[in-house]
Design a protein around this nucleic acid. Structure first.
Length: 745
DNA sequence: TCCTCGTATTTTTTT
DNA sequence: AATACGAGGA
């Protein structure tokens, strides 16, 4: 039995142990939201709710897995039966079981981002839209506009009027394109991300049998990151909890309007405000105490929100007094920013394990320079957001063959396979597709005769379709067939790619149905390397992908105009406000240490030089005295910029270039840095780096312990007050409550 | 007419 | 890195 009252604070306790009916938990950043959900799961299990009657809908699968894992540690019998995943993955599962009628029993495929772009491009070309017209939007902007209209459930024209006034002359053309793209998907048996949600809603409304089956199974629904749901997702949750006129199930939604960062995708904060309307009788619980961050970090975060629009304003409080100051660095350029960050990470690595350190940024490409610097410095990292594994060209090539096997009408897959043979361009693809679809063998033979390589692809796919082999066997066969092309396409690094593809075959081994595997890859691409738990790496991530995660040390880079906030967010006040919340999310990821970096100049390829940039408006808005400012001089020397008016401010202005100026930035960094820090003249607290030791982990004891599930493991470090991190062979690093471990010596 | 290749331009965020 | 566009070849 778990002592809930002891393990949770009052509000958390109320949420975790609340009886039947709808509950809304408004959970501030770091307020123990995950903990609350985990204890909720435990409480439900203790009260006789079978795990498979619980549906946990989260924004990312990573979050769902983490939650289930933490719950498993808490409960003896684990919660393996709890169903959890993204709305999209859940929708796919349901639609696979109850196919939409319009498919007429044809197979269907989930499109990934590249497919959507390719499909819209195809329709655009066929309608001859924007040919030679530079004012016509590019394919990717069009995809964004169409999806935005559907997600916000407003007309395309309204979207244009509001955010792209200059495109209004093209409204008719874009509407035609929207219709053509819809026909395209219908004809080819393809569902894009938005289709999955709307089709699920239709299913729940129109197929009483399916609706009853789902409602009967999932008596308890938990929705995480509720502020990021859009209108149709809220309706889906409502429909899952019962027919329109009455509630038959239970629902708990958890969210924080201050962390709403997906409005661009149609997320609607009103969902939180309207929760009591949609779910009458809802109880509301607020978690406002922050357990994650130290006071200086929280002060910065609160200061950011103080300037937000009223409905988003909130102040979190912490009892963790003290802690390191938040530091703002102003490197001379983004290049020296990368060097400085590398230096700083090296130092943080003496205090923290790699996975406790993260560098965050607004957009995927902002980290390119840092990635190069880290590679040179030999520091391993994992990157989230940006290019995903399943988006790598070689993976898409092999998966396209697999998809063709499942759905011969899958035009994006067909086009990808075809175009990998030389001599086949868009026009030829279309011709071949029409012939292949007509099913006339003689005509097909003739048309394909010119492209023997492609013909072989199709023959192999057909053979494999008939063979009814396992997903792993099918992919292995496709990989062998694809290998020669892999070598010729990527002469430099094909072995690395080959290894990645072999991992795909490994992954597929845990599936019995190929279509599930293909959909999973499109819906939630796994990480690049199959996690080798022994290999601990630091994290690079976009702020969006960092949502819901936390680290001991967070470094936030590129806090300059046009980058953070994104230059695309300047036109609309709401967009600007969303960037502010994004910055808030970024800062609240940090437990002990938060570094802010605002390079003075950015390298510009076109000009082959650097260009001066202003600081992010969010930095200028911060209340004075919240951050400690350090500026970079030549040679990487850092000097403290004293608070305005103090004695040291005059001194900081002078630039005394140290003797190490000629050294490369990351050579003998310790000494160079140390010497560069001016000694305090007025008895003020001294230097920056290396002295800072936020709750330095005690040195590793290298003693062993035993866990009833994971077996014997080595204790890597203690996490005060009551947890330890243990490396279990075969399971990797786990954070576990000491009381669940047996010590060994 | 269609394909290929080189060059210029531009990168938001996610399912 | 990925797209768009224009020149030149089949």
């Amino acid at each position: 039995m778990i002592d809930y009252a002891r393990a949770l604070n009052e509000a958390q306790h109320q949420a975790a142990t609340s009886g039947p009916g709808p509950v809304l938990v408004v959970a501030g950043a770091g307020s123990g939201k995950t903990r609350t959900i985990v204890y909720r799961l435990a409480w439900l299990a203790e009260h006789g709710v079978e795990p498979d009657a619980i549906l946990l809908l989260t924004f990312t699968r990573k979050a769902a897995q983490e939650m289930l894992q933490r719950a498993g540690q808490l409960l003896d019998h684990g919660l393996t039966g709890v169903r959890g995943g993204t709305f999209h993955a859940f929708a796919f599962g349901a639609l696979r079981r109850w196919k939409p009628a319009w498919l007429d029993d044809r197979p269907f495929t989930v499109m990934d981002a590249a497919d959507i772009t390719a499909a819209v491009k195809h329709c655009k070309d066929r309608l001859r839209l924007g040919r030679g017209d530079r004012s016509f939007p590019k394919t990717q902007s069009i995809v964004g506009l169409l999806s935005k209209a559907r997600n916000k459930e407003v007309s395309l024209e309204d979207v244009l009027r509001k955010e792209a006034f200059h495109l209004l002359p093209h409204a008719t053309g874009l509407q035609e394109l929207d219709a053509a793209y819809a026909d395209y998907r219908r004809e080819k048996g393809l569902l894009d991300y938005d289709d999955l949600l709307f089709e699920l809603e239709d299913l729940l409304r129109e197929n009483a049998l399916a609706a009853e089956a789902l409602r009967g199974q999932f008596r308890h629904i938990l929705v995480d990151e509720y502020q990021d749901t859009n209108l149709v997702q809220a309706r889906i949750v409502r429909l899952l909890t019962g027919p329109e006129d009455r509630m038959t199930g239970n629902v708990m939604a958890v969210g924080d309007e201050a962390q709403s960062i997906y409005a661009f995708r149609g997320a609607n904060v009103r969902n939180i405000l309207d929760f009591p309307k949609l779910f009458p009788g809802a109880r509301i619980v607020r978690l406002e105490e922050n357990y994650r961050s130290t006071k200086p970090v929280l002060d910065v975060a609160n200061s950011l929100l103080a300037h937000a629009a009223e409905s988003f304003r909130k102040t979190l409080f912490t009892r963790k007094e003290g802690g390191e100051p938040v530091r703002l660095f102003t490197p001379l350029s983004d290049m020296s920013q990368a060097a400085l960050v590398v230096r700083r990470i090296r130092e943080l690595l003496q205090l923290h394990l790699p996975h406790e350190i993260a560098v965050l940024f607004r957009s995927g490409f902002h980290s390119y320079m840092l990635e190069m610097a880290l590679n040179q410095a030999g520091i391993a990292f994992r990157k989230y957001g940006g290019l995903r594994y399943a988006e790598a060209a070689h993976v898409k090539d092999v998966m396209a063959l697999a998809r063709l096997l499942l759905n011969p009408l899958d035009l994006p897959a067909f086009a990808r396979v075809a175009a990998s043979h030389s001599g086949i361009g868009p026009k030829t693809v279309e011709k071949l597709y029409l012939v292949a679809r007509s099913g006339d063998p003689a005509a097909t033979e003739k048309a394909f005769a010119k492209f023997p390589g492609f013909l072989e692809d199709m023959r192999l796919v057909e053979r494999l379709r008939a063979a009814s082999a396992s997903p792993a066997d099918i992919l292995a066969a496709l990989l062998e067939h694809y290998h020669p092309r892999l070598e010729s396409l990527y002469p430099e690094d094909w072995p690395r790619r080959r290894q990645g593809l072999e991992e795909i075959v490994q992954m597929a081994a845990s599936y019995t149905d190929l279509d599930l595997f293909v959909a999973d890859l499109a819906l939630d691409a796994p990480e690049e390397e199959h996690d080798d738990p022994a290999e601990d790496k630091i994290t690079l991530s976009t702020v969006h992908s960092a949502k819901g995660l936390e680290w001991n040390a967070v470094l936030l880079i590129d806090l300059v105009e046009d980058r953070f906030p994104s230059r695309h967010a300047l036109a609309q006040p709401e967009d600007f406000e969303e960037e502010r919340r994004l910055m808030y999310v970024a800062c609240t990821r940090a437990r002990h240490s938060l570094d802010l970096y605002a390079p003075v100049a950015l390298y510009n390829r076109a000009e082959r030089g650097s260009r001066h940039v202003g600081q992010s408006p969010f930095l200028r808005e911060l209340a004075p005295g919240l951050v400690e400012e350090w500026q970079e001089g030549f040679g990487g020397a850092l000097s403290r910029r004293a608070p305005a008016g103090s004695l040291a401010s005059a001194r900081a202005a002078g630039d005394d270039a140290p003797a190490h100026a000629a050294l490369p930035p990351w050579a003998s960094r310790k000494r160079a840095l140390h010497d560069a820090v001016p000694l305090p003249t007025d008895g003020e607290a001294p230097p920056l780096f290396f002295t800072s030791s936020p709750a330095a982990p005690e040195d590793a004891h290298f003693c062993h312990c035993r866990h009833r599930i994971f077996g014997r493991g080595k204790i890597v470090r203690h996490i005060p007050p009551d947890k330890v991190q243990v490396n279990f062979p075969g399971f990797g690093l786990k954070v576990i409550l000491s009381e669940y471990l047996q010590m060994e010596n």
